[in-house]
Design a protein around this nucleic acid. Sequence first.
RNA 1: GCCGGAGUGGCGGAAUCGGUAGACGCGCUGGACUCAAAAUCCAGUGGGGUUUAUCCCCCGUGUGGGUUCGACUCCCACCUCCGGCACCA
Length: 823
Amino acid sequence: MSNSYQPQKIEPKWHRIWKETGAHKTLQRSEKPKYYCLDMFPYPSGSGLHVGHLRGYVLSDVWARYEKLRGYNVLHPMGWDSFGLPAENDAIKRGIHPRTNTEKNIQNMKRQLEQIDAMYDWSREINTSSPEYYKWTQWIFLKMYKNGLAYRKLVPINWCPSCKTGLANEEVVNGRCERCETPVTKKNLMQWMLRITKYADRLLQDLDKVDWPEKVKTMQTNWIGYSEGAEVIFKAVSAKDEEEFDIPVFTTRPDTLFGATYMVLAPEHELTEKISSPSQEKEVQDYIERSRRVPEAERLAQVKEKTGVFTGAYAINPVNREKIPIWISDYVLLAYGTGAIMAVPAHDIRDFEFATKFHLPIREVICSPGAQRKKDSTPKEAYLEEGELINSGSFNRLSSEKAREKITERLHQRNLGKRAVSYKLRDWVFSRQRYWGEPIPIIYCERCGEIPVPEKDLPVELPQVEKYQPSGTGKSPLENIPEFVNTTCPTCGSPAKRETDTMPQWAGSSWYFLRYPDAHLEKVAFEKETMNYWLPVDMYVGGIEHAILHLLYSRFFTKVLYDQGYIDFDEPFQRLFNQGMVCKRSKRTGKVEKMSKSKGNVVNPDDLVEKYGIDTVRMYELFIGPAELDCEWQDQGIEGVFRFLKKTWDLIPKWEAKPGPEDTETKTRLHLLIRDVTERIEAFKFNTAVSSFMEFVNFLNRSEILARGVDKKTIETFLVLLAPFAPHFCEELWERLGHSQSIFKEKWPLYDPSLVEDRLVRIAVQVNGKLRGTLLLARDTPEEKAVEEARKIEKIRKYLEGKEIKKAVFVPSKIINFVTSQG
RNA sequence: GCCGGAGUGGCGGAAUCGGUAGACGCGCUGGACUCAAAAUCCAGUGGGGUUUAUCCCCCGUGUGGGUUCGACUCCCACCUCCGGCACCA
């Protein structure tokens, strides 16, 4: 047996042994309390994993192994998010069928993941694009459908011309497609929608229940976007035929109602054409047409310049009976509120800009309390604050707050309004006009209409086809496969057609965490009893990029299943941790950027594992910086942890050679190590946990320690602490120390608080706040004695000479500071 | 524009209930070992000044103020970078 540290020898050995003994198999049930530690599962990409992906997996594995040593029955599973755009686009690019390509990618990524030897229980591996799995994704869809949570609607949706599919709001970033950055356009399509808005309030409220980073909670809160106000009904008269319409608007400022000098409808608003006067009709039509064609990205870029057209029609302000003009403009969004607004230019920036441009009247109705009111002067900008009402009839001199209440009350009495809340969150566009996804299990029968596929007929399998490229027509490629499309109605047996849209990539990942605890169940998606043992997920580790999309959708699915009685919890992830991105200087751009193939700055872990071994790679991933922050990969940095492991490897036989008696100093150090490592793991400060191991080894490497040896118990405790970080390394040394059972069967050590407090403490002595010396004292030295000792120090005496001591500040175990008469 | 996070040696980063700034590591310098190199080991390493040397002194945590015996840490104003949202009525 060679004496030097050779990870290339010991790592494959333990990899094999762990596999053979089923070391990472999780007990389905156990007397032990459970711990569910979950990684966000990857989509199988062609380029494989780089060290940036590894960071999160290493982190969660250290955590999982730590919880295992603490005595939990730990579930730490892994699988593949293999349906959807990323996988499909990769396949199209390579000209390989998505199924073949996905299988190939999974093979490669699984090899890489097995290499890091995380304690994944691979017997629970799941794959969202396998029929055994997506059968249940379709089943959940049917549950939603039957409860009115899935519905079909013709809506103008976000359309990516490059991916040739509709997108959810969440998938549009700054007017561009999240995947390919192509500017998104609008398209009117019959879409399947999920009624996530019904859960808006609970998705918001229940954020209080979970232990998540504030940042993510804030992002979700803003996305859901709660506002409180009133719905106000304006009576409008068509300029065409005098027909009357109610136009409800939502406002957060009913106190400004008297200042409403015009109304604006979104161009797509259903009433625009009905109310336009014949003379304005052409202009209105043109405007609607233009705004439909302008891509979102372009519209956002031109935010400053307001555009709009007068409809020729008027509405009546319900509080003062004033007749105000109705305009249309794209600064009003159809999807928010009611798609129409009352415009109060004096107190809203956007309305102010619009009114200024089109010479519409601006009337002030709020003034700051106590301010002198100038008569009839046109304001230079909108006054947005609250204040005191003016020009508001009987509501004058009320505060904004009071007026909101009173005005809403009066509207309510007259049946012209009520209190209302509004959310930014919109229903989830769930249809994709693409091949690679779960077929939506619906059948259209000429006689019976829209019929859900009976549960016994699930899964509706995705057919094997030659031609899977998106068509761009607004129809999925499945449309061209008669064998798939043509079917019979499950109700009446007559010829019928299948829905050809597929589900978005987010469908499978919205519930996968429910599948791992019993991954291969055939009769049901999951069993309640199993759910009650394993769920919710105790720790969820993944990137911040899913702060809204995946996490919001998963919470929604969970709440739906909870409401229908399938599970007994309504939040899926108790604790969430977002690791930072790994960056590297890109030779191509010269900047430090997130690793990506296109930037040419990826580091492949395979080469590193070959050179240093996975334990070193694992420890460097942790040592590189604070886990929650982005970090910069430095090729030479890894040498440090490699040297640490090599040094430790060489030292252990030396310590062991003279198994000296426990000495107090070593014992104190060991207990400090136990305390620090435990606290730092708990706080997710893995980088400083690694430093504490280094400090400990540096201490035990001192010649006097080597001369007297180190007792075996100390070495063993050290190895147990290090095991979650460098599992092969510790398992091997554990065996060499004579143990026949795995180190992971040990118990996480506890520290003795009485040992970590030194009896002697070194305290700083300052004169006027500047350090002039130190003093070694017994921990409980009284102030008087400490000050006396401090004054005896020669240097201190020098500084105090000829000065009057005005004050001596004493902080036990920390500091003495003499304050003198003059500096 | 609004909200949030962060600015500390040549580099990654420690320390934040105010109490010895720079732990740990990379890199660098010098030395040991070697025919030589790699590896390893030892010493040094924030800037400036002073001394034969030991010592010692001054400055120093983005900038400018403030509170305090004492500020990387708290307060005010500002600068820079990063992230999120962005006509949401």
